[in-house]
Amino acid sequence: MRKVGAILLLVLALQLALSSAIPTPFASFVSKKKARSAPRQQISKGTKQETPKAVNSAKGATTRPPVDFKAIGKYVGSLAVQMSALFLVWSCIDTVVTAVPNGEGLPRWTNTILFYALNLLSSKFNPLPKVSEGSYASPGRKRPSWTPPGWVFAVMWPFFVFGTRAYTMALIVEKVGYYANPITMSLMLHLGFATLWNSM
């Protein structure tokens, strides 16, 4: 059983070494989108700014922009690919662990590392391209006075959020007895939505 745990940890360490899977902030996507949009016209003081509306010339009524079904299909398809791949990964781990004669399962610390690594590697299962790296800085953004400094997020995400999530899932796997369970797949769905957030 220790050999199986050591092999899994070695594979995850190699993936982490080759991975740049730390999520890209959504701010870079927003700034890129703004850069592509047309610049706003200067409006003199005293004039009222109006947003352009699409007008149906036949009926004279305003129309809503069309639904981008292509984008919806792209994201739904990507989420389906991610969930299928992750379910396959957990099913393979179940097969390997149950094949061990003593049937004790992996130790809790190994499961914790396994789930922690998956937090970092989840974006590797996303077939869509990621948003290009951009600056975190948003000079024009107004933040409340109680906003914590940036280093707080750098500490909270890797240690508190990923750590507690990984340890909790390790406890759940011990209770349920297998990895490809509905609770684990619910976490995978959450991570899938997180990777779509950083996709183009």
Rank of each mutant, 00 (worst) to 15 (best):
M1H: 12
K3L: 10
A6C: 05
I7Y: 00
L8F: 08
V11A: 13
L12Y: 03
A13M: 14
L14A: 12
L16F: 02
L18N: 13
S20N: 09
A21N: 11
T24E: 09
T24K: 13
P25M: 04
P25R: 06
P25F: 05
F26T: 15
A27Q: 08
A27M: 11
A27S: 08
F29L: 10
V30L: 10
V30N: 03
K32P: 00
K33N: 09
R36W: 01
S37K: 08
P39S: 13
R40M: 13
Q42Y: 08
G46A: 02
G46Y: 01
T47H: 14
K48D: 06
E50T: 10
E50I: 12
T51E: 11
A54H: 00
S57H: 06
A58S: 10
A58Y: 06
V67M: 14
K70W: 07
G73C: 07
K74C: 07
K74R: 15
V76L: 15
G77Y: 01
S78L: 06
L79N: 07
V81A: 05
S84A: 14
F87M: 01
S91T: 11
C92M: 14
I93W: 01
I93N: 00
I93H: 00
V97G: 01
T98Y: 03
P101T: 13
G105D: 00
G105R: 01
G105M: 09
L106D: 02
P107A: 15
R108H: 05
W109E: 02
T110R: 02
N111E: 04
T112N: 10
L114V: 00
F115C: 00
L118K: 01
L118W: 07
N119Q: 07
L120R: 14
S122C: 13
K124N: 15
K124M: 11
N126Q: 01
N126I: 02
P129A: 05
V131I: 15
S132A: 15
S132I: 12
E133W: 05
G134L: 07
A137V: 14
P139S: 14
G140V: 02
P144Y: 04
P144T: 01
W146G: 04
W146D: 03
T147P: 00
P148I: 02
G150A: 12
W151K: 14
V152H: 03
A154R: 03
A154V: 08
A154S: 12
V155N: 04
V155K: 05
M156S: 06
M156P: 01
P158D: 03
F159S: 13
F160R: 09
V161Q: 15
G163K: 00
T164I: 15
R165W: 05
R165S: 09
R165Y: 13
Y167V: 13
T168Y: 08
A170E: 00
V173M: 02
V173A: 08
E174P: 01
K175E: 06
V176G: 06
Y179I: 04
T184I: 03
M185Q: 15
M185F: 11
S186K: 11
S186L: 15
L187P: 01
M188A: 09
L189V: 12
H190S: 12
G192L: 06
F193A: 09
F193Q: 11
N198L: 07
